[in-house]
Every structure is written in C-alpha cells, then in structure tokens.
C-alpha cells in the first residue's frame, strides 16, 4: 500500500496500522528480548550489581577496575590476537577457494559442499574431534608431524603458547566455507566482458585476477571483512567448548570473560561494562572500515 503525497491522513493511518500489524508479532518479541536488554546493558555498565545485592550507581568505577584487572588485559590482548590471526587467514583461504571453484571443473558441487560442511556442524562435536586430533602425545596431528621428523611438536590446546593458535586453526577451518560462498556470489557478478577485454589486452590469468577479479570483488570483500571482523571479536562458544579460556589465561577472550563475570560469578554490572567495551571495539573497527572504504571509492 503506497502512501502518496496526495494521500489523506486517514489513508496514512490505515497504512500505518496495516504495516504495524505485520511487523508487530516479530517486533514485540525482538524489542522485549533484544532491544530492551541492550538498553539495560548500557545502564548496568555504570552500576555495581552483584547477585544478592541491590544495584547501585557507581559511575565509571567498573571501567577503572578493568585497567588493573589482569584477566581483562589478557582477554583484550587475546581477542585482538585472535582477530588478527583469523581475519586475514580466513579471507585469503576463502577467496582462494572461491577463485578455484569459479571454473568448470568436475565435482564442483561436491567440493563446494565439502568446504561448507564444517560451518554447519555443531561446535561441541567439532571441539571433541579437534581436541582429540590435537592430542599432544598420540594425536594424529602430532603423530604426523613426528613422521615428518619434528622432534618436539607443539602442545596445541594443552600449551599456553599454542592454545590460541589451535583456536585460530579450528575457526578458519570452520568459517572458510561460509565466506567462500559469499565470494562465489561476488565472482558471479563480475561481467565476463571485463575478462574478455583483459584478454584482448594480453593479460594472463594472474594479471586478470589482479586487475579484474580483485577490483570487481571489492564490495564483496568489504562485506566479508566486516562480517569476519565482527564474528572474530565476538568469539565465545568455541572457547567455551575447546579450552574454557585456558591453559591459564591463554585463550581467555572478552566475550568469555563477560560470561564468567556475569553468569558464573554474578557480577552483572562489571560484566556489562566489559561487554560495552567489546561492543565499542566492534563498533569502532566497523566504522574505521567503512571510512576506509569510502575513501577508496572517492579516489
């Protein structure tokens, strides 16, 4: 139902009522269980509220507390490291897979399905099998590394140095198929005439990839970057099922600390403050990415 400039107030009211009748069933649930909690979280960040006590306003005390909180510092660093490892790796792998699969090879559908399947399998099962694969003494990965002649293979999830790396590996393995699909869709949208023109100019495969494919994929790459960055910063359940933040603090990440402080220890205020920091980081990174994209488009 279109409301034109000539519409009478009655028609506008009617359209509004009808529009809302469609939107409300979802919106009420969404507002009560997502929007309202979001607003409450913002307020909670400035309060002290431990389970069993009444909430009191404490200003910035929660944020000051973070500065000296060793868990928070470790979680902040680990979250950044995790994103720094996962984002570029997943981006390169998924783009590479999409580029390879964007040609007519036999078994294409099978390959695409195989790459995508890890994305939709349960994290608990994934964690169970990878924890066994990573097993230090007799796991298949280290057995394989020893046959290659490595005397002292990594300790993976059992070692503070390698635990985060293990999480990055599993995370790339699990996510690459999803982003590959996004890239494949992007590749299909590049006009074939561009490739033909490039060929006329004598460009080889690699040059075509650099000068036609990559620029043509720019909107997709931007979208993938944003999605990937956001999902890396909110990494949470993988940590819970694989390492529970350990060994020591080596895989403690911000989202996991929110859960530990808020739900395990019942410190609602402090946990909310940490979650706001996490949210702020995600927001800033996203805005920076948007700005960079705009600049690029302008030039």
């Amino acid at each position: 139902m279109k409301v034109r400039s000539s519409s009478s107030p009655r028609q506008v009211r009617r359209a509004t009522a009808q529009g809302l009748s469609f939107i409300l069933p979802n919106f009420v649930g969404f507002a009560v269980f997502t929007l309202v909690p979001l607003v409450i979280a913002l307020a909670l960040a400035f309060m002290s509220w431990d389970a069993g006590h009444d909430p009191t306003f404490v200003g910035l005390a929660n944020f000051q507390r973070m500065v000296t909180d060793l868990n928070f510092r470790a979680a902040l660093v680990n979250t950044l490291l995790f994103a720094l490892g996962t984002v570029p790796l997943t981006l390169v792998v998924s783009l590479g897979l999409a580029a390879l699969l964007n040609s007519k090879i036999p078994g294409l559908r099978f390959f695409r399905a195989a790459m995508f399947f890890p994305y939709i399998t349960s994290l608990v099962a994934v964690a169970a099998v990878w924890n066994m694969l990573f097993s230090v003494n007799s796991g298949p990965i280290n057995t394989f590394l020893r046959t290659l002649g490595m005397q002292d293979p990594p300790g993976w999830t059992a070692s503070p140095q390698w635990a985060l790396v293990s999480l990055i590996i599993v995370s790339v393995w699990r996510g690459m198929g999803y982003y590959m699909i996004l890239f494949l869709a992007g590749l299909q949208s590049i006009p074939t005439q561009l490739y033909e023109a490039a060929q006329m100019d004598g460009a080889g495969r690699w040059k075509q990839f650099l000068h036609v494919t990559l620029p043509g994929l720019r909107p997709t790459t931007f979208f993938v970057m944003i999605m990937l960055t956001i999902s890396s910063f909110k990494i949470f359940d993988l940590v819970q099922v694989m390492t529970e933040g350990g060994p020591g603090r080596s895989t403690l990440v911000l989202a996991y600390q929110v859960y530990q402080e808020g739900i395990v220890k019942g410190r609602f205020g402090y946990a909310s403050a940490i979650s706001m920091v996490l949210f702020a980081i995600v927001l800033i990174v996203t805005i920076v990415q948007f700005r960079m994209e705009e600049k690029h488009v302008d030039h």
């Binding site: 269980f33 929007l35 909690p37 859960y259 946990a271 996490l278």
Partner: peptide, 20 residues
C-alpha cells in the same frame, strides 16, 4: 533500528537477558 542490532555481539545483551 532492527538491522543495526545484527552487528551487536550477543554477549552485549546476554546479562540483561539472563536477569529477565
């Protein structure tokens, strides 16, 4: 307002949801 919440990490509103 709706879609801007898609980018918000779930952990941000996890605690209030839990209390509710």
């Amino acid at each position: 307002a709706y879609i801007s919440t898609i980018a918000v990490p779930w952990t941000t509103y996890m605690i209030p949801q839990y209390i509710m």
